[in-house]
Design a protein around this nucleic acid. Structure first.
Lengths: 211, 211
DNA sequence: TAATTTACCATACATTTGTATGGTAAATTA
DNA sequence: TAATTTACCATACAAATGTATGGTAAATTA
């Protein structure tokens, strides 16, 4: 049995910032940066400064690189297939949807799950969304940049309660339909103040962890 | 309103292969290849051959690149945030799990969902897995390379019926537990012939399409 | 205090990478 | 048939990228 590889040495703030930048670049749909690109990002006049930081990150075991290959910067994370992602809010049963300015928590997603910059994650708490077949602990991927079309699943706050329902607009009337037929369709006038549309739910991700 | 961008010109086999290679490299946890790396992959003696193919792909509108930047090869897909992924099998109610040698279908996953090479997708048909809170149309990400630990969600075939359940081995006895307490735990002897373990379910992905 | 680490800059050089240009042979199209 | 496209090779060059080496100043550690 192998013990968990320890990240023995602490990182300085700048080293951490650079590592985060690399992770972020890799995570968003983009590709890892070159030394020059990192240099530019942090306002250095010179690649060699970044060169030193990369070397430090490598020595401390946080980064792995392939010699003479461009952009081959691989962050070494404790569990290699997991990448931390911020969770920006929670949808709790009966409670208002709260989206925090900073992340309230960090979720470990398998590294193949990468989130676009215009999307954020919501973690579902409790059974408030079971009418949409979404359960406690599920992660909802919410995109705020996609225009809301008829028939889309929207994440909305309705009178302080978070809902994920199918959105249908017919003239002045808005219908919020549940996937589960046991739940009733909500009908609203389009200028109803109690409805706030947050974004479009583009997917559900459920991590099947072994606990 | 914008019409769907048409990929007017057909690709040749080699062009498609190269495009697929780029997409695959981007999709797996790796990074886009350089011309040299593509060249090596396809056994060319020279980068310039790939150079031509890349140019063709660009002209035909399948690829976008940034001049003078290494590895900046971005496949242009109809809907930019979606990437096609093969579905290798189906889990149908009451029927045996079928895994086909070739993909039976292609599913459009958001580009931030990237599947490791050792994983494959199974699409769930019907309500056969509702005891695991998995519903019709959901995609199960199955990893065949991960060792099956106690407590993991396994994809298994039990007497010709596909199941996704929590796997617990105690001595000679294997328990297959359902998440949903309404369903009973299955107990088996570890040498029971009717059980075939396919892999570990590492996640569920549900595409919330607007149909 | 002396040694070390950290954070930055500068320069030189080798390799990788992208690009431009030209060529050949086979297949396809006009 | 002639022109075009496709698929490959070769070479030369410039830009990008990684690397090696040396330096300074401030902060930290021994």
């Amino acid at each position: 049995m192998y013990g968990k590889l320890k990240m023995s040495i602490e990182l300085t703030k700048i080293q951490k910032d650079i590592l985060d930048f690399i992770i972020e670049k890799r995570s968003n749909n983009s590709i890892p940066p070159t030394l020059s690109e990192i240099s530019e990002q942090f306002g250095y006049k010179n690649r060699s400064t970044v060169q030193q930081h990369i070397l430090a990150l490598e020595k401390k075991g946080y980064l792995k690189k392939t010699p003479n290959k461009s952009r081959y910067l691989e962050p070494v994370l404790e569990d290699k297939i997991f990448v931390p992602r911020p969770v920006l809010g929670e949808v709790a049963a009966g409670n208002p949807l709260v989206i925090y300015p900073d992340s309230i928590d960090s979720v470990e997603l398998p590294s193949f799950v990468k989130i676009a910059a215009t999307s954020f994650l919501l973690r579902v708490k409790g059974d408030s969304l079971k009418d949409a077949y979404i359960f406690n602990g599920d992660l909802v991927i919410v995109n705020t940049a996609v225009p809301i079309k008829n028939g889309a699943f929207v994440v909305a706050v309705l009178d302080d309660t978070a809902v994920i329902k199918r959105y249908i607009k017919l003239g002045d009337e808005i219908e919020l339909r549940s996937e589960n037929k046991e739940f009733k369709t909500i009908k609203l006038n389009c200028n109803y103040e109690g409805l706030r549309l947050i974004g479009v739910a583009v997917g559900i991700y459920r991590i099947m962890d072994s606990n």
